[in-house]
Design a protein around this nucleic acid. Sequence first.
DNA 1: CACGGCATGTAATAAGTTACATGATTTA
DNA 2: TAAATCATGTAACTTATTACATGCCGTG
Lengths: 182, 182
Amino acid sequence: MRCGAGVMDVKHLCLGVLCVGDSSGYDIKKYFESSFRHFFVAGYGSIYPALSSLLKQGLVSVKTQHQERLPDKKIYEVTAAGRAAFEEALASTVPRHKLRSEFLTLMHFAHLLPASQVEGALQLHLSELQALRENLLQANRQSTAAPYGEQFSRDYALLSTEALIDFVQRFLQQLPEKTANT
Amino acid sequence: MRCGAGVMDVKHLCLGVLCVGDSSGYDIKKYFESSFRHFFVAGYGSIYPALSSLLKQGLVSVKTQHQERLPDKKIYEVTAAGRAAFEEALASTVPRHKLRSEFLTLMHFAHLLPASQVEGALQLHLSELQALRENLLQANRQSTAAPYGEQFSRDYALLSTEALIDFVQRFLQQLPEKTANT
DNA sequence: CACGGCATGTAATAAGTTACATGATTTA
DNA sequence: TAAATCATGTAACTTATTACATGCCGTG
């Protein structure tokens, strides 16, 4: 039945960003980092090919902007067809939600590792959570009056992130006792 | 520099499961579903090829178990080399933690969708969270005296899941007001 | 008799990551 | 002078998903 529906890939996310406003591949990555970071990650290696593909499909158009002292910029703009395609894709999206965590894998098998490494992983994860919290708080400060769903998405992440920071911190304090009998 | 370190893929996870006890591909999938579900997903399409590959590398051995009235079973067992390889892989694992959420994507752009679909997605996500909670609670009930890290991994997920169930439920109650002015 | 569970696998496809490749400007 | 920012892209590789393929057994 090979149905192409339900997919939300880098291509569609780029289209979504362009529906918010015109921008370059470089700027789209910035947007990913500031607004999608908590639920989607993409690098240049997937963004640039995505934009080429969107261009080929006529879903975006492009203008080259020459800049003084800086490399040329290619500003992409969503077309009417692109906007329609995005809304359609969004409407047929299956709302999956999938975590892939090497950190939790490592924790699952923590008893096979030296306590020092477990602590290191916890500390590293904690700092990542804290960085994410900062990121989310900053986004909340910057975009007042964001669409309600965008706000939901950020608050959703913020809530769980703050709970987890707390959880990991408490666990780190109890660690010595837990690994003592190893 | 193409360094193969830091990876935790289906192959290594299978090896990890086999370090806990001998089992078949079918049973490994069961283990994935009951114990890794909250941080890693894998289907037969990745588990069976992973086992063949492990066998080729000599990291596991296999015995075919004939069963009455049921299809034959291939019971895999980790070898000494396999155990060493897993511990080494674990020790060199970079503790990433990556979410990929079509659900949050959809929410981010909720203002482009009819309220009914947004509500549907929320309801669906809520039921997934509730199912996950049940899964985690059941695991907690079944495996008393699990290694401390395994317990951490479950509690970590349980904490955030319960907070999020609450959050989504509260949001669902406020939804009508938020979408009223659309 | 249909559906779910048990049980194993392959092949085609899709998708994203990493490294490579380049090069000017600004800041510490 | 080293590093970070700006700026764009390609190619090889790795990985996982999906669909396909098969077939018996037990339950309702």
